[in-house]
């Protein structure tokens, strides 16, 4: 399973490899490098160039010329600063909730069900099963469930927790809920891959050395599954920050829950390419800085 690749830091082979210049290696790497240049470096360069463009002389919509208009960035930050903050908060909340739900689930599949391989595969399939239905369709289904006449709101109004004019859709709750729901498999699978390999003899040894169940979890099980937790949180946090579906007013959000992804999407379709590009680059930087700090702190530099 591809997720296993994230969970295993593995031995550092580069240190022991002979430092001999090899043309064979270069030739073998060439297709990959060319692919990266064509699909990553070039678009990124183009994005940076676009972010500094200014409107063309004819003042037609969507016409821009190359320039160094850094004001695009000032405009992006000035207009959308609050949205960046919200994006970070929502993604962080979704990551935390997904972790709280996924860890016990992954532990159940990877450790508790170890003796029953059949059940293990079955539950694992259940985790992946939602992928068989379109992501948009599932999010729309939640919109229907949370709708004003839907079961959840009706119930909350019936027990008096909600007033007759209080609704769920379009609130921060539904957006964070949608993000959490949609990214749970990305959190569960890497943690599962880590826990599935957990040698229970270490846990036994911990018990033998006077560690109670809580201490065994914090000092042995969690540290040994940390690579999975780091991969899982990154696989959740990064795409959640760029998500433009859940927070969109067509799905679970409203104008009050706009995230950076929605801004980029809207600006692009309104042909404001330079500001849209500037927001994209700012978002990228805003994600990279905390992610690098997190990975360094968790001691999983191998992931970088």
């Amino acid at each position: 399973m591809a997720f296993g690749a994230f969970a295993n830091s593995g031995p550092d082979l580069s240190a022991s490899a002979p430092r001999r210049r090899s043309y064979v290696a270069l030739i073998l790497l060439a297709p990959g490098i060319l692919y990266l240049i064509a699909t990553f470096v070039a678009p990124l360069g183009s994005l940076v160039l676009t972010s500094f463009k200014e409107p063309g002389g004819n003042f037609e919509v969507g016409e821009y010329v190359y320039a160094f208009r850094w004001e695009n960035y000032a405009e992006a930050l000035g207009r959308f600063g609050e949205i960046f903050g919200r994006t970070f908060l929502f993604s962080l909340l979704a990551t935390i909730f997904a972790l709280i739900i996924s860890y016990p689930l992954a532990y159940f599949i990877g450790v508790t069900l170890r003796r029953f391989p059949l059940w293990q595969s079955l539950v694992l399939i259940l985790v992946i099963a939602p992928f068989f239905i379109s992501f948009l369709l599932r999010t729309l289904a939640w919109k229907a469930i949370f709708s004003d006449e839907g079961p959840v709101v009706s119930f909350l109004q019936a027990i008096g927790l909600f007033g007759p004019e209080q609704y769920l859709n379009g609130t921060a709750f539904t957006v964070v809920f949608g993000l959490t729901y949609n990214y749970i498999p990305f959190m569960t699978l890497p943690i599962y891959a880590s826990l599935e390999r957990l040698d229970l003899r270490y846990v036994e040894a911990g018990g033998d050395l006077y560690a109670g169940p809580v201490q065994r979890f914090w000092r042995i099980i969690l540290p040994l599954s940390l690579p999975g937790v780091v991969s899982g949180t990154l696989l959740t946090f990064i795409p959640a920050s760029g998500d433009y579906v859940n927070a969109s007013k067509d799905f679970l959000g409203s104008t009050n829950t706009v995230m950076a992804g929605n801004v980029i999407n809207d600006l692009f379709f309104q042909s404001f390419y330079p500001v849209s590009a500037a927001v994209s680059i700012l978002l990228m930087i805003a994600i990279l800085i905390p992610v690098i700090a997190y990975v360094m702190k968790s001691g999983s530099e191998d992931l970088l």
């Binding site: 003899r201 270490y202 036994e204 040894a205 540290p223 040994l224």
Partner: peptide, 18 residues
């Protein structure tokens, strides 16, 4: 186990790798 005044040297050693 953690309540018993007993310690074990395991066959696999089970030293915590982290």
């Amino acid at each position: 186990p953690h309540q018993r005044p007993v310690n074990t040297v395991f066959q696999s050693y089970a030293l915590f790798p982290h």
